[in-house]
């Protein structure tokens, strides 16, 4: 792919064989086709982008209208009649004890479930990466095998188990279930990351007489920061957005926002003033986390592509 400088075509300044020159070498027709298809690509991507945005915008605008307006016309009418916008639905929603209580429950479930998975997963990940014990690799492969077990398999057995030990319906039960099904991914991700830590670092600390626990807290956890952040964000979103597990394991008083909203869906039209703002509020935190920690989220998604 060299361009003999003497062979430059009419009107093309003699230049080093840069990408520019290569482009100029191609026929006029090819260049026109490029410009046209470039325009087409832009239009196509804009249309697709709009299609991806519009549903969410529709939800937001729907949440800002009265149920009466919603019953009579589409949300896009707001664009021509901005006076329809009202925060009434949000105000009533925040005075609704069931909804505010369920938001609190979502937090009470999500935060411990995330922290526990991170801590327990890190301990096990470190053990699998750097400790010697018989059958280590087999145990690890077993955990990896559990990565793809569908949660559905456990719903009924665990419901009975929790019933027997008296935590069915409680927040603790929901948390435990999420921890159990978050662990295979946590162990998998962290073990692989910890295994990349340079051996000399750990050896040096061991020679200094540090115990395993101290090594873990002082060396491994700080170095594992990026992976721990990815895992934490992934698990946080996973638990925050869950509906199925809480639908089964949480009593009425302990249900998170997803389950509280789900009970209103059967009468969709009548409850739109709860559903639209409720859904939007439930999305605010995950979206904030998503935008703030995009990089970590993406690397978590990549590592978890098998889950």
């Amino acid at each position: 792919m060299s361009t003999p400088s003497g062979a430059a075509h009419d009107g093309v300044p003699k230049a080093a064989p840069s990408a520019e020159a290569l482009k100029a070498q191609r026929s006029l027709g090819a260049r026109i086709a490029d410009v046209l298809s470039g325009g087409f690509v832009r239009v196509f991507l804009i249309v697709v982008g709009l299609f991806w945005l519009v549903p969410t915008i529709g939800l937001l605008l729907s949440s800002l209208r009265t149920p009466a307006d919603m019953g009579s016309s589409g949300w896009w009418k707001v664009l021509s009649q901005p006076s329809q916008i009202t925060f009434d639905s949000y105000q009533r929603l925040l005075e609704n004890d069931t909804i505010t209580g369920s938001l609190l429950n979502t937090i009470l479930i999500t935060v411990p479930a995330t922290l526990l998975v991170v801590v327990i997963g890190s301990l096990a990940g470190y053990a699998f990466a750097w400790m010697e014990f018989p059958g280590r690799d087999w145990w690890f492969l077993l955990v990896v095998g559990l990565l793809v077990v569908p949660v559905q398999v456990a719903l009924l057995p665990i419901a009975q188990l929790f019933g027997n030990i008296g935590i069915f319906g409680s927040i603790i039960g929901v948390i435990l279930f999420h921890v159990g099904f978050g662990l295979p991914f946590a162990v998998f991700l962290l073990r692989n990351f910890f295994a990349e830590i340079p051996r000399e670092l750990l050896e040096a600390a061991r020679l200094d007489g540090a115990g395993e626990l101290r090594l873990f807290v002082r060396v491994v956890m700080p170095l594992g920061g990026p992976a721990i952040a990815s895992l934490g964000i992934f698990q946080f979103l996973w638990v925050w957005n869950d509906m199925l597990v809480a639908l089964i394991f949480a009593d009425a008083g302990n249900q998170p926002i997803t389950v509280a909203l789900q009970t209103q869906v059967r009468q969709f039209g009548n409850n739109i003033d709860v559903l639209a703002p409720g859904a939007f509020i439930s999305m605010v935190i995950p979206l904030a986390v998503f935008f703030a920690f995009q990089k970590q989220f993406v690397s978590g998604v990549m590592a978890g592509a098998v889950k």
Binding site: G49, L59, N241, A279, P286
Partner: peptide
Amino acid sequence: VVFMPMAISMLAAGIIFRL
């Protein structure tokens, strides 16, 4: 824009698409 819906719950997405 296209990746964003991954961050929200399927419940919220369900309500969005009911609309």
